[in-house]
């Protein structure tokens, strides 16, 4: 019997996600100002963190590909971009659903929301570009350049709340100094961050394996 690391990772991610739901809905108290709609943050914040992580991995893998021309680096960038786009989509949708009862609008063109929408569209373009070029080597090279350029938007997304006057609040955790929230809410948030990070690693590992199998089948 072979030991399937990806499968174990998948089960571990599923269990941590279940723990995250227990923390978010069972342990964390009802937020006084926003009410229970604040529980959307246990989804919105971790998926936003995973999107940052995913595009950071695209950046590193793209640089590695341009430096060494290893197919493995390109497959990692491809997988991470695909999973990152999905998590960014979930972040935007969850934020929008939270925004309607809290801000009174589904969407507003403030700096944070606009920069994250640009990030989403740039990586959608990255995936489209891959699909449009038949030559694997050329697709990998063009996408590595685009992957690096698009990742430059991540700091803009994160710091936009400091650089411009926005409706979106500044970060509560990813900031200098201590987190400004009750310990139970912070704990629920951190468990969910770990859970969604594990889910990201699981998806990327599975996707990289499939991309390798696809290229072997085509060869």
């Amino acid at each position: 019997m072979t030991f399937n690391v990806t499968k174990v990772l998948g089960w571990f991610a599923a269990l941590t996600l279940a723990a995250g739901m227990v923390m978010g809905f069972g342990v964390a108290p009802r937020e006084t100002t926003q009410g229970n709609v604040q529980r959307i943050m246990y989804l919105h914040v971790p998926t936003a963190w995973v999107a940052y992580l995913a595009f950071g991995v695209v950046l590193a893998a793209s640089i590695a590909y341009l430096a060494r021309r290893r197919a493995g680096a390109d497959r990692l960038a491809h997988a991470s971009a695909e999973v990152g786009v999905m998590f960014t989509g979930v972040t935007i949708a969850a934020g929008s659903i939270w925004g309607k009862p809290t801000w009174g609008t589904w969407w507003t063109w403030d700096a944070r929301l606009t920069s994250v929408a640009i990030l989403f569209v740039m990586y959608l373009g990255y995936l489209l570009l891959r699909g449009m070029i038949d030559d694997q080597e050329r697709a990998a090279r063009y996408c590595a350049v685009l992957g690096i350029e698009a990742a430059l938007d991540v700091p803009l997304v994160h710091f936009s709340v400091y650089w411009w006057r926005t409706l979106h609040q500044p970060p509560s955790v990813l900031k200098p100094g201590a987190a400004t929230m009750p310990p139970a809410i912070l704990a629920a948030l951190l468990v969910n961050v770990v859970a969604f990070t594990l889910l990201y690693v699981y998806f990327v590992a599975k996707r990289v394996r499939l991309l390798r199998a696809e290229s072997e089948a085509l060869a």
Partner: peptide
């Protein structure tokens, strides 16, 4: 403030559909 459980259900439901759909695709 009202709890808006329907919004909470919509956000998590959407995430389950998207992430579950991707897992099924893989």
């Amino acid at each position: 403030m009202a709890d808006h459980w329907n919004f909470v259900a919509a956000a998590y439901g959407l995430a389950v559909v998207v992430l579950g759909g991707y897992w099924r695709r893989l």
